[in-house]
Amino acid sequence: MIEAINEALDVTMARDPDIVIMGEDVGYFGGVFRCTAGLQEKYGRTRVFDTPISECGIIAAAVGMGAYGLRPVPEIQFADYIYPGLDQLISEAARLRYRSAAEYIAPITVRTPFGGGIFGGQTHSQSPEAIFAHVSGLKTVIPSTPYDAKGLLIAAIEDNDPVIFFEPKRIYNGPFNGYYDKPAQPWKKHAASIVPEGHYTIPLGKARIVTEGEALTVLAYGTMVHVAEEVCRQKGVDAEILDLRTLVPLDIEAIEASVRKTGRCMIVHEATRTAGFGAELSALVTERCFYHLEAPVLRVTGFDTPYPHSLEWAYFPGPVRIGEAIDKILSE
């Protein structure tokens, strides 16, 4: 996925001279996760550059550059550290088009690694997507495969609205099925690791059907797509798994069509439960598919605690928690 992200940045930078990349350690060093490796050498220091350690400053400068007419792609090193930039994202980037009646826009894409499963502890594991999904004017995108990562990132950069692009760092190097005690798999054995060269996009606001099924709809995104897929496979459940890919705007049509078909719905995310994005999904499914439901909509999520270090695998919504929820939904 890292290479796919790097390619997406390379492809868009080559096409559009107004794209600039900025963030902590993204320049000469190429990023702490290597996502921007080689780009400064190729495009020069005025298009790919390091910044002071100031998330507020990074987002704010990007907003100002966007007002000028550039298309900045700032990086926040970990989603856990995006909070100092929240005022600039929520009060400024998200509102610029609205408050100026489209005189000024913020065509910026904030890339940030997110999610747990890497022993990152409290401040290298968080999944704060619900904060952003709650803000009118922001788009929230989360890929789960290298193919999607490249296509979605190019689409995000070319989009004229501000996009928060969460990169699940647990699956940077390979898919993760939730079995942390088994050897990690590299992407090259996975079908979705085949990434076409050059330019292609995946439209924002469109979910991907991972598996088709009749018994149960699973709504997931990021790392949890792979975990849910593995559990359903092992249990032999005929599940229809939707990788949402974009939380805002949400592909409500795909969700409705699937839940109306299966009559059952499970929502899976790593983020904490209360007021998480799963609550919004659950409410939408209940409001719009109520008479098709044969069982309560269940959420499988992280617990309502800060992300712990030593008890990571007790916190992570892994195969056991997902399996129990599936049994419960199917038993109704």
Binding site: V20, A60, A61, G64, M65, A67, Y68, E92
Partner: peptide, 18 residues
């Protein structure tokens, strides 16, 4: 929101320089 415009102005100026 107070002072948000100050680093934005710097970003605009950086863009002009870029």
């Amino acid at each position: 929101n107070l002072a948000t415009q100050t680093p934005q102005a710097v970003g605009w100026a950086m863009a002009s320089a870029i």
